[in-house]
Each structure stands twice: as C-alpha cells, then as structure tokens.
Design a protein around this nucleic acid. Structure first.
Lengths: 148, 148
DNA sequence: CGTTACGTAATATTTCAAGTTACATGAAAC
DNA sequence: GTTTCATGTAACTTGAAATATTACGTAACG
C-alpha cells in the first residue's frame, strides 16, 4: 500500500512514462513486482501502460477523485489486521464467545481504517508533497530523491 | 490473542490446575508453545504455574478486572495491523507525505481496537460462554423432548 | 528486424512464526 | 532419596506466505 502510493505520486511528477525498471530501482525491488502491483490499477483504469520504445507507466485518471480506498481495493483488498480469530466457525462454545467479542472489535477497526482511506485523495497527498518541497526549497526528481 | 483467551476461559472452568500438555492438546499445538505464551501472563500475575505432581496452570486474578487489553499487553503488544509504512523516517518527500497520511489512519484504527479491548473483561466472555451453554442445553432438551 | 518495454507463468528465495527437541529445575509421591 | 511429573528456556527445525527472480511471450517503435 505504502509502496504503491509512493510509486503513483512519483509517476504524477514525471511528464514522461516511467518504466517498471525505473520504478523498481526507486523502490529497491524487481520490475516484475512493479508490474504485478500495477496490474490491478490498470484494470480499473487508474494507470495506463505502453509497450516498446518510450513506453512505461502513466497516470490515467484525475488524482483528485482517486482515494486511498480506491487504491486499496485495486490491490485486491488484502487483510488489514495482523491478528484474527483462530477459526471461522468453531464448535467450542468458549471459542464462539471469544470470536464474537474479538470479531466486533476487528470489524470496527477495519471500518475506521477504510473510512479514513476513503477521505484521502491522491491529489491531497500530492499537495502535501509539494508543500514539503517548497518548505525545504529542494529540487525533485525520481532518481535523486532515492539516492543512497 | 484468540488462542490465549480461549485457553484462559477453559482454565477458568477447571477447578484443578491445567497442565501445558492438556491445554496444548485442546489447542492442537505443542506444550512448549503454551508455556511460552503463558510466560507473559504469569509475569503480570494473571496466572500462576506449579511444578511437579498435580501442578499446572491456574487463574490467579479476578476475571472481572482482567480486560482483553491487559491480555494483549501481557503478550508483548504484537503489531495489530497487517500493513504499515515502508520506512520509518524516509528522506524522500513523497514518502514522507504518504507516511503522514497513512500513519494517521493507522493510529486511529489501532486506538479504536485498543479501546474496544479495554472495554471487554474476561468475566464478560465467561458470562457469554455460559449463556451459550444454557441456550444450547435448552434446545437440546427441546429436541429430545419432541423426538420420537 | 532489432531493441525496448510490458504480461505473466513458473520457479526460487527469504522471512518469520510455529513447532520440536533437549535438558535443567523444582515439587510431590513412594 | 529417588522416581515421576510438571514447568522454564535455550537451541534448533519446519513450514507456509510473502517476495524476488527467471524465462519466455507479445507489442510498439525506429
């Protein structure tokens, strides 16, 4: 999630398509990993990919309408919580009681997280980034931003 | 978490100490795993362990004062969320903006989860269990009463 | 066509939690 | 006392899931 948002915002700063290789280098991972992650975003039309010379990835939507929740869903809605119930429908009545109590807490926490995600657009993040940039009066590009 | 609560409630139902082996069998795991998990609870005085013949684990506190949050803390406060920020303090301003937004959402969700945990005592879970037991007995009796 | 770049299946690697073994300590039974 | 039962822990092994890599296919551009 964190990594995808990072990639998307960097793409938004580039005026030319960013190749999987460039993005992978910036994220310290493999180009194939980038392509896998981006596949879900492409299906929903949030980004576009071009093959061949001058090809690569570009943003294909209005960042002010793209929320963190949209991105989360495009990633296949991976589980948000690190802990959960041991079993889904246990016969043991003790475990049923435990599941009921924990389950309520889990659902509430997930709901909070998703609703916060829905409140934040990529455009807001971009604005935040540009404010940080102005404050530090730094220049910016994909390569130097991730120099060692 | 789920497993520990399960174990504690079963212990509360036993009038004699429960051995790690018994508990491990019930949880389909290894006795050593039980001991490891219980170590944190023992340190805080929630349970007590006795060696030798007739030894094992017993509850050592008032379940009406023991909350899910207490148990969670006794387990070493493992991370609650499955996702997080890629880096703690990134140089990249884009990543800083992403971290700030996601971080707020994460903290809120964790706070919700912890506050729900703090609201539920083990005694409440035990009551819930006994209610389920009573309900089931009743329907069992009804069934057999109308059988044949 | 040759080069560049994405698409994706298949495979390999890494990582981390969970399980296991081994042995030490202490308490009760005999 | 010594035998048996049980916990206490360190060290090691296993296994499953996430991640990374390889390999090969397709498409675009010059």
């Amino acid at each position: 999630m964190s990594g995808v948002l990072h990639v998307l915002l960097h793409m938004a700063e580039e005026d030319r398509p960013a190749t999987s290789e460039m993005l992978a280098k910036a994220m310290q991972t493999n180009p194939v990993v980038i392509r896998r992650i981006m596949a879900g975003l492409r299906e929903r039309g949030y980004v576009r990919s071009e093959k061949g010379h001058g090809g690569g990835w570009t943003i294909n939507c209005d960042l002010s309408t793209l929320t963190l929740r949209d991105v989360y869903q495009a990633l296949g809605e991976p589980s948000l919580l690190a802990i959960g119930n041991r079993m889904e429908s246990p016969d043991c009545l003790v475990e049923q009681a435990v599941n009921a109590a924990l389950g309520r807490a889990f659902e509430e926490a997930e709901a909070v997280l998703l609703s916060r995600f829905a409140e934040v657009t990529l455009a807001q993040l971009s604005t935040d980034f540009h404010q940080r940039l102005a404050t530090l009066k730094q220049s910016h590009d994909l390569e130097t931003a991730h120099a060692e």
